[in-house]
């Protein structure tokens, strides 16, 4: 959901070792097509009657799983950037986030149409009564403002700080998404557990780095060894 920082580098200069504008455009185009692959794969199977005995269930499941997968990929950008030093990765994050929203919308549409056939009374009851639907629906509602604010003009209008504060809800959305999956499986929790572990690692890395940063700032600044420092004492 997050976009590049609103403060663009001055024209003519680009960060060292980063890709050129052309390379970045190529990377974005490639990513766009990659993100469409699951859709293409399932459409092709659907049209060729290869989705098994219960194609609607298969579509519901696939759209939900790809929402979660892309969400985890989006959340992996920051740790990946930190570990590799490839700061340009952040320029791909908005598109990933918007694809999360795209697949989540397909998933919701499948439920509203192919599962409930727009029976709004039943849908309302489901949302209130079924915890896994409640959390899934809440996650989707929280995604909407993030998708709407994934535009440079909106970021300028909001201001970087507020935009960032808003987009922190992606952590809650991810947790809700995994809980949604966990609560819907009948018995075998292997798959939701895998998603939960990856999410825990991605969020855990952030918490750990944050804690390190906090400690670094709190620690008394030691003078470099071997140098005598004359303390400045106010007289």
């Amino acid at each position: 959901m997050r976009a590049a920082a609103p403060t663009a580098p001055p024209p003519g200069r680009r960060p060292p070792h980063g890709p050129s504008a052309l390379q970045l455009a190529a990377a974005k185009s490639a990513l766009f097509l990659i993100c469409l692959l699951p859709l293409g794969w399932y459409l092709n199977r659907l049209l060729n009657d290869q989705l098994g005995a219960n194609p609607i269930e298969a579509i519901t499941r696939a759209s939900g799983e790809w929402t979660l997968r892309l969400l985890l990929v989006t959340l992996a950008i920051t740790p990946l950037r930190r570990l590799t030093g490839w700061h340009w990765l952040i320029r791909l994050r908005r598109m990933l986030g918007l694809f999360v929203f795209f697949y989540a919308s397909l998933h919701l549409a499948t439920y509203l149409w192919l599962d409930q056939f727009f029976d709004w009374a039943a849908i309302g009851k489901d949302i209130l009564k079924r915890p896994f639907i409640t959390v899934g629906f809440a996650a989707y509602l929280l995604l909407v403002p993030l998708a709407l604010s994934s535009h440079n003009a909106v970021i300028r209008w909001l201001g970087g700080r507020r935009w960032q504060a808003l987009h922190r809800s992606i952590y809650a959305i991810a947790v809700l998404g995994v809980v949604h999956f966990w609560w819907l499986v009948k018995r075998d929790i292997t798959e939701p557990l895998i998603y939960a572990l990856i999410l825990a690692a991605l969020l855990g890395a952030r918490a750990w780095w944050r804690e390190q940063e906090r400690r670094r700032q709190l620690a008394p600044r030691r003078p470099p060894a071997g140098k005598t420092v004359i303390p400045i004492v106010p007289r």
Binding site: A53, N54, I56, E57, F117, K129, R130, F132
Partner: peptide
Amino acid sequence: VDHPRWSQASERRIGEFTK
């Protein structure tokens, strides 16, 4: 009597589109 996590009021007959 619903399953605690989902409704049992309707079903999808395999091979059919509507429930």
